[in-house]
């Protein structure tokens, strides 16, 4: 049963996941090619100087928004088919507990999202180690983690927004809330800006995970 449910989730999102992976790979390869190019055109130590001393972020740019986009895309692909024509009723009618069904769906989406992020991180890290020492890699992780945290947050918020049955007011409020929650995370600051606060923002992101319980309860009660 679990396998079948995950199979359904995968059917919905597979093209989206592969596209996002491809986008990540293209973007990261582009970043590295550009880095390689500037290192050849100028001297490598000059690029190091700009990066370490002047705080240039060669990896910011589109990469800031890709985790956000993938969270959004996966949530939409997974839940738009469920809420259009109220298909969620079919899903919740499956002979499993409703909590089990929804947790599996959202857990699977989260896992796929994290896997996508992991692939992106691994590739970026692998390619960056050619040009930079570990200090920069650590700094890059700390600097870019909030963007990925923002992506998870968007995913969780958007699932709650989709399951929420009352279109007009409540969904708009949740969208506004999601915007203000995520916006600070996908803003580019100086490097290592979140060095002391990643845990706090991680906990804050986790708080958005169970919001779908509320939406689900409202869906079940038939709030209009």
């Amino acid at each position: 049963m679990i396998k079948a449910l995950l199979y359904k989730e995968w059917l919905k999102m597979r093209w989206g996941v592969l596209s996002m992976l491809l986008l990540f790979v293209i973007n990261i390869v582009y970043i590295i090619l550009q880095l390689d190019y500037t290192m050849r055109m100028y001297e490598a130590h000059q690029i190091w100087y700009n990066t370490f001393i002047r705080g240039m972020l060669f990896y910011s740019g589109t990469l800031v928004y890709l985790p956000f986009l993938s969270g959004l895309v996966i949530a939409i692909l997974q839940f738009y088919p469920e809420v259009s024509d109220n298909r969620l009723k079919l899903t919740l009618h499956l002979p499993m507990t409703e909590l089990g069904i929804t947790l599996l769906m959202i857990g699977f989406g989260t896992a796929i999202l994290i896997l996508t992020y992991w692939v992106a991180y691994a590739l970026l890290t692998l390619l960056t180690t050619i040009y930079f020492p570990m200090e920069l890699i650590f700094s890059m992780w700390i600097t870019s983690l909030p963007w990925f945290l923002g992506g998870l947050m968007v995913y969780w918020m958007v699932t709650a927004i989709f399951i929420e049955p009352a279109w007009k007011f409540r969904r708009i409020l949740l969208i506004i809330l999601a915007y203000f929650l995520v916006q600070p995370l996908i803003t580019v600051y100086n490097y290592n800006a979140f060095a002391h606060s990643l845990t706090k923002f991680f906990i804050l992101s986790l708080l958005t995970f169970p919001l779908f319980f509320i939406s689900l309860d409202r869906f079940r009660k038939g709030v209009y």
Binding site: A4, P81, D85, R87, L90, P95
Partner: peptide, 22 residues
């Protein structure tokens, strides 16, 4: 469901495979 709603992103084979597990 009203309107014979089903998982319309699946094909005939996939939907049988899906439901049979339950």
């Amino acid at each position: 469901m009203e309107g014979h709603i089903q998982y319309n992103f699946m094909n005939l084979y996939q939907i049988e495979k899906f439901y049979s597990a339950f």
